[in-house]
Design a protein around this nucleic acid. Structure first.
Lengths: 116, 116
DNA sequence: CGGGATCCTTAAGGATACTG
DNA sequence: CAGTATCCTTAAGGATCCCG
């Protein structure tokens, strides 16, 4: 089975749709972006990502953690401290994301996207 | 500027968000999947993608065409015939999508995704 | 045949208040 | 501080009908 056929086969996109279902959601990439720089706390993320609601941030973080792109560390202190960082798997995904980014720069620079 | 910093910089994801805004939408990948196999007509796509509405299919095709991932050829015949195929740019995107797919297979195989 | 126009439903996300 | 709970708005997509 060639690479070509692989893309075209029925279920070829299922794992892909799963990832896209995660990183394609609002704020997900920006969150990833922040955490990729360095470990971040909830409050830090909220501050950096101007406009995100705590509900959304919380959801995104949980989703990213679920698929092991990021990991969460809770320090049993008062006040509570929680840190989010990239997992090795997250690092490997980053590479792919960067190539997508590059593709975008090469091919979408002049393209405006309108809908419906 | 290292690859690492590139990912983390403010606007690094903008082109990326643009692509995700396209290929992350419902049916987009499956459509791409179909067309990647071979040139397809509107009706063929409708048949293959069981459950897609003509409105949605039409939107997705327009979006993919706008960013030059696919190209549309209209044959001035009666009844009308329209064919969609991958552009060279679409082919290059396919490669990246396949690596995303691979990432998913390696890292998400056992992961179930739940929300909210 | 290849869509566009219309109407409707649902789910994602925003805003805000509250709590261990 | 790090979230959760609640309410509300919006936009994406489904279903259907119709037309060149």
């Amino acid at each position: 089975m060639s690479k070509n056929d692989e893309l075209a086969s029925e279920k070829c996109f299922c794992p892909m749709e799963s990832i896209l279902g995660i990183i394609g959601r609002k704020w997900a990439l920006l969150i990833l972006c922040e955490i990729a720089t360095s470990t971040k706390r909830f409050g830090q993320l909220q501050k950096s990502l101007q406009g995100i609601s705590p509900k959304t941030l919380s959801s995104r973080l949980q989703e990213l953690e679920q698929v092991r792109i990021i990991s969460k560390t809770v320090y049993p202190e008062v006040p509570p401290r929680v840190e989010y960082s990239l997992t090795p798997q997250g690092e490997s995904l980053k590479t792919i994301i960067l190539s997508l980014d590059e593709w975008g720069r090469e091919h979408l620079s002049d393209t405006e996207i309108s809908r419906e």
